[in-house]
Design a protein around this nucleic acid. Structure first.
Lengths: 145, 145
DNA sequence: AGATTTCTCTTCTCTAAGGAAGAGATTAGG
DNA sequence: CCTAATCTCTTCCTTAGAGAAGAGAAATCT
């Protein structure tokens, strides 16, 4: 049963999203929290104000969003040395719930990737890199609308 | 700058998730709605009861979830010919907001994929297919916990 | 056929999350 | 030096969404 390529890719994306949601749900992590966490993982540490912009939230909810993430151990607040009004929110790489929950999937994917040869892996990681940029741009465009 | 492979993949996943969230947000689609939509796209049409199980919601919220999705034009209710109590919720492939919003990203990805040769595409789609199954299994396991 | 079970949908209630406005603190500019 | 602007955080309010319980309809079993 050879499905259409577009359909294969659609299902692939759905599976990735679905797994992400299921993981967040398993950690009692809200959708916006996961969203913010992805932003921080992708773009690195930033101030609460910048995170407000990115998430589209106003500053009030953002503060409590950071509170939740900090309390759950995913990020931490670090004072900005240059501007003492500011704070930098940086993601913490640690054995938090989300990592534990994601581990089985990472293992499965690792297993799959180990089945490829070097030049095949080059192709795959070339794609990963390009696709990351593409999705990042597309998300940026969406945000601007 | 050759980053660690695991890090590249992490960022890739973050970008995919981020784009999905941004798209949902642009369509005023709630997190659970997107979650359910992914389930339907991945597993095909199912009854509201089955969708309740998958989403982890009770039947009440599920009904209104389907109401929202139906009203927004993403799914439709079809009576089950075998059991007239039942209803089948099937995803509607149409020019809904989400498709329109996702279009730029699909175009970018299409552009990237067109840059590969036939055997490279075979590798990529082999990966997509395997990864879909892996994530689907992992999500299933998460749901069971 | 009658009783039980199954399935969807409705209603009510409650919690969680977001918006708006403003306070407090710090920096920049005249 | 003093005013204005910037940034984070707090407080209050509103609303979307989830749970619980039950009603109504249809299938299954005895």
């Amino acid at each position: 049963m050879r499905s259409d390529a577009s359909e294969v890719y659609r299902r692939y994306l759905s599976a990735v999203m679905l797994h992400g949601h299921a993981g967040a749900r398993a950690c009692d992590l809200g959708a916006t929290d996961l969203y913010a966490l992805n932003i921080l993982q992708l773009s690195g540490a930033m101030s609460p104000g910048a995170l407000s912009d990115r998430t589209g939230l106003t500053t009030g909810p953002t503060t409590r969003l950071i509170d939740r993430l900090e309390q759950a151990g995913y990020v931490r607040r670090v004072p900005d040395p240059d501007d003492r009004r500011k704070i930098v929110v940086e993601p913490v790489a640690g054995p938090a719930d989300l990592d534990r929950v994601m581990a089985p999937a990472r293992e499965k994917i690792g297993e799959i990737l180990r089945g490829y040869g070097p030049e095949q892996l080059d192709v795959l990681f070339d794609y990963f890199t390009r696709a990351t940029a593409a999705y990042q741009e597309a998300a940026e465009d969406l945000r601007a609308m």
